[in-house]
C-alpha cells in the first residue's frame, strides 16, 4: 500500500531515470553561473564544471540504465560519476550511489525502502568525507533531507507531504551553510572569510533534490 501511495506506478522501474537526469542537467546548467560564483568565492570554482561533466556522462547512459534494476542502475551511476567527475564531489557522489546500489538490493522501492537506500548513500558520504552536518558541505543539504524522509516514513505521510518536506529540508539546509565556518573542503582554509557564502555543494545538492521531488510529484 505504502508503495503505491508514495511512488505511484511509474517510479517502480528505471525508465524514470533518463528524463530525471535530463531535468537535473537542465537545472544545473540554468544555475551554472550562480554556482560557479559561489565556488569561486570560497573554493576554486571547479565544482559545477565537474558536476556538468558527470551529468553529461550519465545522460549518455540512458539506454543502458533503463535495462537495469534499481540496484544495478545506482551502481552504474556511481561508477560513472566516480570515473568522470574527479575532485572531492566525484568520489563522494560516486560512493553515495554505489552504496545506494548495494542497499537497493535489500529494499523495496517504497517510502521506507527509499529512505533506507538514501540513508545508506548519505552515510557513505559521511564515512568517505569524514564529515557530518554543520561543516559547510553538501551534507548540510543531504542530512536534513534524510531526517525528513525518516520522519515521514515513520508517520507514513502521503506523497505530497513527503515531497514538500524534502524540498523544504533541502532548501533550509542549503541556506544554513551561509553563516557557517567551513571545517571541511577548500573553504576551510579561509577561516572566518568563508562566512557569508553558501557552500556550492550544498546548493547543487539542493537543486538536484528539488528537481527529483518535482519529477516525482508529476509522476
Amino acid at each position: 500500500m505504502l508503495c503505491n501511495k508514495f511512488t505511484g506506478q511509474n517510479m517502480t522501474d528505471t525508465t524514470f531515470l533518463p528524463p530525471l537526469i535530463a531535468a537535473i542537467q537542465a537545472e544545473i546548467l540554468n544555475n551554472e553561473e550562480e554556482i560557479s560564483a559561489l565556488d569561486r568565492a570560497i573554493g576554486d570554482g571547479d565544482h559545477v564544471t565537474n558536476l556538468i561533466r558527470g551529468l553529461e556522462a550519465l545522460s549518455k547512459l540512458n539506454d543502458e540504465l533503463v535495462q537495469l534494476d534499481w540496484s544495478a542502475a545506482f551502481m552504474k551511476i556511481g561508477m560513472t560519476l566516480m570515473s568522470t567527475m574527479g575532485g572531492a564531489s566525484g568520489s563522494l557522489l560516486g560512493s553515495m550511489f554505489v552504496s545506494m546500489g548495494k542497499e537497493a538490493k535489500e529494499q523495496d522501492i517504497d517510502l521506507a525502502g527509499i529512505t533506507a537506500i538514501y540513508a545508506a548513500g548519505v552515510e557513505s558520504i559521511k564515512a568517505r568525507g569524514k564529515a557530518d552536518i554543520g561543516e559547510k558541505t553538501m551534507l548540510d543539504t543531504l542530512i536534513p533531507v534524510m531526517q525528513s524522509l525518516q520522519s515521514d516514513a515513520e508517520q507514513n505521510s502521503d506523497k505530497a507531504t513527503v515531497l514538500a518536506n524534502i524540498k523544504a529540508a533541502a532548501t533550509q539546509g542549503m541556506q544554513s551553510t551561509k553563516d557557517m565556518l567551513a571545517t571541511k573542503g577548500r573553504a576551510s582554509f579561509l577561516g572566518e572569510r568563508a562566512r557569508g557564502h553558501i557552500d556550492a555543494g550544498a546548493r547543487t545538492s539542493q537543486l538536484i533534490l528539488c528537481v527529483i521531488a518535482d519529477q516525482l510529484s508529476e509522476n
Partner: peptide
C-alpha cells in the same frame, strides 16, 4: 593528471 585543479579519478 586530473582535470585542471581537479583530482584524478580512481580508475
Amino acid at each position: 593528471p586530473g582535470q585542471v585543479f581537479t583530482s584524478p579519478t580512481p580508475d
